[in-house]
Simulated assay, not measured.
Amino acid sequence: MVRSNRSRSRAARARQEHQELDVERLTAGWRRTESRSGREWNVQPVSEAQAVKAYLCPGCGLDVAPGVAHLVAWRADGVLGDAADLASRRHWHIHCWRIGTP
């Protein structure tokens, strides 16, 4: 049997990197709605296992490191629609979200 030298995982990763933004997949799970400063916010927790990238927390200005549980928040009542609100989502440290005002 002939063996291919091409890595199948590399090809699979390339296909996954260019997927369109799936609003339903990103808003599923433990998402909740909170009111802050007269605005509605969608808030979704991210577990340690799901946190694979570093983000800048808008509350404290420090990095949310990979492997650190945190929250993702985006407007629930934006005038430009769900896709635009989801594209402007921000990753917050849990403590910063609790004490901060977006």
Results as ranks from 00 to 15, higher is better:
Leu71Cys: 09
Ala65His: 09
Gln16Ile: 00
Ala69Gly: 09
Ala51Met: 15
Ala11Met: 12
Leu62Gln: 14
Arg8Pro: 06
Arg8Cys: 11
Asn42Tyr: 11
Arg6Val: 15
Arg15Tyr: 00
Leu26Phe: 11
Ala69Gln: 11
Ala69Phe: 04
Leu26Tyr: 10
Ser4Gln: 15
Ser35Lys: 14
Gln19Ser: 06
Arg8Val: 08
Trp41Gln: 09
Glu24Gln: 03
Val43Arg: 00
Leu56Tyr: 03
Arg15Phe: 00
Arg13Met: 01
Pro45Asn: 02
Arg31Thr: 13
Trp41Phe: 03
Pro45Glu: 11
Gln50Glu: 15
Val23Ser: 12
Ala65Gly: 05
Leu62Met: 10
Ser37Leu: 13
Gly59Met: 08
His18Glu: 07
Ser7Asn: 06
Ala12Glu: 02
Val43Lys: 08
Arg25Asn: 03
His70Ala: 12
Glu40Lys: 08
Glu40Ala: 13
Asp22Phe: 05
Trp41Thr: 05
Tyr55Ala: 05
Cys57Glu: 02
Glu34Asn: 07
Asp63His: 08
Cys60Met: 12
Gly29Ser: 07
Ala65Leu: 13
Asp63Pro: 05
Arg32Gln: 14
Thr33Gln: 05
Glu17Gln: 14
Arg31Asn: 08
Ala51Ile: 00
Val46Gln: 02
Leu71Glu: 10
Tyr55Asp: 02
Val72Gln: 08
Asn42Gly: 01
Gly38Trp: 00
Asn5Trp: 09
Pro66Thr: 14
Val46Asp: 02
Glu17Met: 07
His70Ser: 13
Val72His: 05
Trp30Pro: 02
Ser37Phe: 04
Asp63Trp: 10
Ser35Thr: 12
Arg25Gly: 01
Ser35Asn: 14
Ala12His: 01
Arg15Cys: 01
Glu17Asp: 11
Gly38Cys: 00
Gln16Gly: 00
Val23His: 00
Ser4Ala: 15
Ala69Thr: 03
Arg6Asp: 07
Leu26Met: 11
Tyr55Ser: 09
Pro66Leu: 15
Lys53Cys: 04
Asp22Trp: 03
Leu56Cys: 04
Glu34Cys: 08
Asn42Glu: 06
Trp41Asn: 10
Arg36Cys: 08
Ser35Val: 15
Ser7His: 11
Arg32Asp: 06
Gly38Glu: 01
Thr33Met: 05
Glu48Asp: 05
Ala28Phe: 04
Arg6Cys: 08
Gln19Ile: 05
Trp41Tyr: 12
Val43Tyr: 10
Gly67Leu: 08
Glu24Trp: 02
Ala12Val: 10
Ala51Lys: 01
Asp22Gln: 04
Gln44Phe: 03
Val23Gly: 00
Val68Trp: 08
Leu62His: 10
Cys57Leu: 03
Cys60Pro: 10
Trp30Glu: 15
